[in-house]
Amino acid sequence: MICIEARGLRKAYGTTIALDGVDLRVEEGRILGLIGPNGAGKTTALNAILGLTPYYGELKVLGRDPWAERDLLMRDVCFIADVAVLPRWMRVSHALDYVAGVHPRFDRAKAESLLAKTAIKRASKVRELSKGMVAQLHLSLVMAIDAKLLVLDEPTLGLDILYRKQFYDSLLNDYFDRSRTILVTTHQVEEVQDVLTDILFIDRGRIVLDRTMEEFESRYLEVVVRPDHVAAARALRPIHERQVFGGSVLLFDRADRQQLAALGDVRRPGIADLFVAVMGSPNQAQGAVR
């Protein structure tokens, strides 16, 4: 079943084009990372998917038009923008009451048990909680909702590394199953690398790379080339080259592993390396997409 399907999605703010004909197809049960530099259109894309902004083009989320049917869509979609969006005046107990009151799929007992694992008190106000606790609270609320699509927009912004790790761990272990879909944007790419099943690079309103993790792992190879082999390695048309201490690191797309092994140490690149390769060199990026 298709969770999100977009064709020719466009959105402009005045003369600034935020989304320039995005085609997207996300199947059920995937964890998709939407990765792009600042101002690439990530948040605009998420807003369109969540029905927070009007758009041009065709977009269906869980079979619904998000702009026209946001309130119905939100029964099946959860959304964590970032840690700052929980209203600061709200008490934890109020948040539980309210979500239980308006959300038909909210399991209050589950939220209570998730909160019991944290140090959050029922009577505290959101403004009295630390940033990490607010993230825990929001995640507890969201994880207690039996939703089909969870959208996370920079969910761990400003959190320390322990909270970030904990956040993704609990998301993966306690929440994700094969019938759910998670869409996440983040700049901390290397932290979500092991979590994702699909990656999507977006730049200047366009999708520049769309891969599953299996494709990513089988296609891209990184070689730490010794100085004397650099010329030979360059002849194999790497998509990116960077200098590190004691040699060059070259990134190859669909290269022969045996051939590369002769040139130096072959290893699997990180998403961050591929991101830099694709975003850093626009001409080469086209090659990476084809």
């Binding site: 119905l72 869509l73 939100m74 979609v77 959860c78 959304f79 964590i80 969006v85 209203p87 308006v102």
Partner: peptide
């Protein structure tokens, strides 16, 4: 107010219509 403090993103993530 809720636009200013961005909590509108939380309210809009719940199945409550804008009309309501």
């Amino acid at each position: 107010g809720e636009r200013r403090d961005r909590s509108i993103l939380f309210w809009k993530s719940l199945p409550v219509s804008d009309l309501t």
